[in-house]
Design a protein around this nucleic acid. Structure first.
Lengths: 222, 222, 222, 222
DNA sequence: AATGAATGAGAGTTCATTCAT
DNA sequence: GATGAATGAACTCTCATTCAT
C-alpha cells in the first residue's frame, strides 16, 4: 500500500513526515504520538501519511533504523581520530552523549521499542554492540587491553553509556529531569555530560578493560 | 476517590487486582493493558477497580514502587552474606537477574515508565543506585576498592546490570528473544545468566572498581 | 468481547439496538448503515453498541438469522390451516409477500448478504427451501402432486417467490419502485401482491407441480 | 468530466479499465472494490480513471448495462436454433447458466445493484423479462403453450433461473459454495448445471406453461 | 493522454472513567 | 463492597475525487 515517492515533490513530503515524526515521537512516545499529530506538524493531510507509510508501526521501525544508523555514524566519526582504544572509547561516548542531547528521540523511541517492536530494539542494541566488539577485538589484538571476554564487555559498555546518558544527559546535571541551564551541551568537541563525569566514567572503563603489561592498580602501586 | 480497603474482603480484592495488573502490564505494556483486561483477569467487576485506585496511572505508579521495593529487597538479601564488596556485588547481581527472570514485569514496566510516569522511573533507578553508592562508599572506606567516584560508578553498575540482564535474561542465551531451553533460571543459588557471563562481568567490574592492593578472589592471591 | 446483557436494563438496550439496526439496514443496506447511525437511531452511545455486539458484521448475521426465523414462522402460520398442498403453497406465499411488505429489510439485507456474509445467505435460502421440500414430499406421498424432483422444485418455488415479491411487492404494482398508493398491503388475510398476480402465479405453480391422477404429460396421455 | 476516448490508445485504456472493473467487482462487490484497486489491476494511474468515467457509480451502471446486453445476447443465441418454445426455453437457460459460470460478476454485481443503483437493477431484470414475455406471447399465439398470463409467467421464469443458477452454478453441485470439481461447466453445448437438474427444471416449467394438446418434446410424440 | 500527489471526511472500534443499583 | 451499563472522545486507517504536471 505504501510506496516510495516517484517525484521530487513526493520525496520532500515524505521527508517532512519523517522529520515531524521524530519530533513528535520524542515528545510523546509511540502511543501518544497520533498520526494526526504527526501530519499536523508536517503540514500535510492525514491521508498523505498512508501514501508513504503502511502504518504507524512501519514509520516507527523506519525511524528506529534511521536513528540507529545516525548514532553509529556519529560515534564512529567521534572515535575515528583517536590514537588508541581508550581514547577512541572516550570520543565515541562523547559523541554518543552529544547525539543523545541533540536527539532525545533516541532515548524515548528506543526504550519504548521494547514493547512496540521488540525486534527493532534488539537490532538497535545489537548493531551498536557489534561495533564495540569489533573495536575491542582489535584493541586486544594490538595489546592495548587485557584478556577479557569482548562480548560481555561490549554489552557492559552499552549499558554504561545508556545509563550515564540517561542520568546526566537526559535528566540534566542535577538529576531531576528538569533541565539545569547547563552550558550548551551540543557544542562539538565538548561532551554533553560534565567533564569530570566523563573522566570518572573512562577511569572506570579503563580499569575494567584491563591493561596489558604493567597494571598500575596492582604491582606498580605502593 | 480511591481508598484503602476497610475489610478483609477488600484487602483480598485489592491485592487480586494488583497481581493481575503485574501480569497484564508485563505482557502488554502500559498502553495496551486495559483496565477491563486487568479486572477480567482479577475476576472482579470493572467498577471495582476504582474503589481501590484513582486511575490506571495510579495503579501503575504503585506497581513500579512495589517492584522496586521487592527487587531491592532481593538484591540486599542476596548480598547480605557476602564476605567482601566484590562478592556482595556478584551476589547482588545474581539476585537481580533471578528477580528479572521471575518477574519480567520489572523490565517491561520500568522501561515504559520513561514515557508514562518519568518521575516513577527516576525514583526507581535512583533508589537502586543509592544502595550501590552506600555499598561502594563502605567498601572504599574499608580499603576494598580503589579511589573512584562512587556516584558515577554506581550508575555505571546500574547500566551494566540492566543491559546484561536484558541481553542474557530477557532475550535468552542466544540473544534472539525466543527463549532457549536454558536450565531453570530461577533456581535459587544459581544465576539466571550463564555462569561464565557472570564471571566475565564481575571480572570487568572488579577491574573497574580497582583493587588497592591485591585481588583476593583469584588465583594470583596467596 | 460482546456479552449477553445481565440486567433488565441491558436487555432493553440490546433490543433497542437490534430494532434500530433492522430499520437502518433496510433503508441503507449493510455498507451505508454505519454503526453511529444505528446507535443514534437507537438513542444510545456509540460505545454501547460494542457491549452487545462484537462487530457490525456480528449484528448483521444475527439480524439475518432473526429475519429468517420470522419469515419462516409467518409462512408456516399462513400455510397451517390450508386443506391441501396447493392451498398451503398459496397461503405460504401470501404470508411471505405480506412479511416482505412489512419488513423490506428482508430483501435488502438478504440480497446484500451475498457479499457480506455468504454463509448467512446460504443458510437463509437453504432453510426456507428445506421447508418447501418437506411440504412437497408430504404432498407427493399423499398423491396431491405429480412425480417430480422435490429439491429442484423447491428451489424453483423459492426463486418464483423472490422474483414476484420483488416485482410486485417491493416495486409496487406499476413496477417502478416508486410505491403506488396500493390499498394497505399488510392487511392480514389479503396478499401484498394484486390478487390476480397471486392467482396466475398459483396457476403456474399448480401446472408445474403436476396433477396426480390425470397427468396429461405422461403415460396416461392418449 | 468523463469523455469517450478520442484515440486508439484511449479506447484501449478505457476497455482495460472496464475489464479490470468486472473482475474486481465480481470479487469484492461494489463497496469493497476501490477505484485504486481497479486502476491497479488495469495497470493505469488513478487519475486516468476519471478521464473515462464520471464516478465509481457511473462505471458500475455501465458495467451492469454491459453485462445485461451480453447475457441477453448469449440467451438469444442459445435459443435461436430451437424448434419450439420449450426447447428454446431450455437452451436459453442453459446459455444463461453458462454465462453465469463464466461471469460470476453477473450475480455479484447485479444483486448488489439493489442497494447501489436500484434503477440499474430494475432495468436489468425488466429487459430480460421482456424477452421472455415476447417469446411466451409468440408461443401462445402458435398454440405451443397454455392460456396463461405471460407477464407473471415471465417473472416466475426469471426467478427460477436466478435461484437455480445461484444454487447449482454459483454454489456448485454440493450446494456449499466451495466448488466441487465439476467437469468444466463452461464447455459450450453443455449446461453449467447438472443435466438432471436442467431436465427436472424444464419438466417443472413445461408443466407450468401448460400444453394445449400433447407434449411434443418427448418419446410419446410421433 | 496520462498520472502521482494530495486530501478531508468518515468508517469501525477501543477505552478510561462515571454512575445507579 | 461490588458491579454491569453506559458513554463520547479519540484512535488508526480507507477512499473517491481533484489537480498540477
Amino acid at each position: 500500500m505504501s510506496a516510495q515517492p516517484r517525484t521530487a515533490r513526493g520525496v520532500e513530503t515524505r521527508s517532512r513526515i519523517l522529520r515531524a515524526a521524530e519530533d513528535v515521537f520524542a515528545e510523546l512516545g509511540y502511543t501518544e504520538a497520533s498520526v494526526s499529530r504527526i501530519t499536523d506538524r508536517a503540514g500535510v493531510g492525514q491521508g498523505t501519511f498512508y501514501l508513504y507509510f503502511d502504518s504507524k508501526l512501519d514509520l516507527f521501525n523506519e525511524l528506529v533504523e534511521d536513528l540507529n544508523r545516525r548514532v553509529r555514524h556519529a560515534m564512529a566519526e567521534g572515535a575515528a581520530s583517536a590514537p588508541d582504544r581508550i581514547s577512541a572509547e572516550r570520543e565515541g561516548f562523547a559523541a554518543f552523549f552529544r547525539f543523545t542531547a541533540e536527539h532525545p528521540a533516541l532515548y524515548r523511541v528506543v526504550r519504548e521499542a521494547e514493547l512496540v517492536s521488540p525486534e527493532a530494539l534488539r537490532l538497535h542494541y545489537t548493531r551498536i554492540v557489534e561495533g564495540y566488539i569489533e573495536g575491542l577485538d582489535q584493541a586486544h589484538g594490538a595489546g592495548e587491553i587485557g584478556d577479557i571476554d569482548t562480548t560481555v564487555a561490549a554489552w557492559a559498555l552499552m549499558g554504561i553509556g545508556e545509563m550515564i546518558g540517561m542520568r546526566w544527559v537526559l535528566w540534566g546535571s542535577n538529576g531531576t529531569g528538569e533541565g539545569g541551564g547547563d552550558a550548551d551541551p551540543t557544542a562539538s568537541g565538548t561532551s554533553a555530560v560534565p567533564e569530570h563525569v566523563l573522566d570518572e566514567m573512562m577511569r572506570f572503563i579503563g580499569g575494567a578493560l584491563g591493561r596489558p603489561a604493567a597494571e598500575p592498580t596492582k604491582e606498580e602501586e605502593s
